[in-house]
């Protein structure tokens, strides 16, 4: 078991920082402080953070902030960012309107 999964580990209390109000996720407007607090609320994986705060769940799908969020979570957990499993990759990789997403092309009639 690596240290990220070891939930018995004590990461210490949340200590407010001077740059806690720094915006990290530009789309969903989530701050560094919120992300750090979330780790102390028990969200140790990037997938959990995403679901808890919606970081990387906005229009851009984490294009800009995923690396930044990873760095902040890793620091809070006292591990290297490389040890953190990135959030799940799934369809759709890009913003897409629901009406398009639901509009599967007729497989008999070729799309292009």
């Amino acid at each position: 078991m690596n240290s990220v999964n070891d939930r018995t580990r004590d990461i210490g209390p949340f200590v407010p920082g001077p740059d806690d109000d720094m915006l990290i996720c530009r789309c969903e407007e989530i701050t560094k402080g919120e992300i750090r607090q979330a780790v102390h609320d028990g969200m140790w994986t990037l997938t959990e953070i995403r679901r808890y705060l919606r970081t990387g769940m906005g229009l851009c799908q984490g294009q800009t902030c995923s690396k930044l969020v990873k760095g902040i979570v890793a620091r809070e957990l006292g591990v290297s960012p490389a040890e953190l499993e990135p959030a799940t990759s799934r369809v759709p990789m890009r913003p897409i309107e629901m009406r398009v997403f639901a509009n599967e092309a007729d497989s008999n009639k070729e799309g292009e």
Binding site: R26, C27, E29, L59, C60, Q63, T64
Partner: peptide
């Protein structure tokens, strides 16, 4: 202007990635 904080945004990546 953003939804929560009403902050101004403009061009950031210019290639369709950041959606700002």
């Amino acid at each position: 202007y953003t939804k929560k904080e009403h902050k101004p945004r403009g061009i950031f990546c210019a290639i369709g990635r950041c959606t700002d």
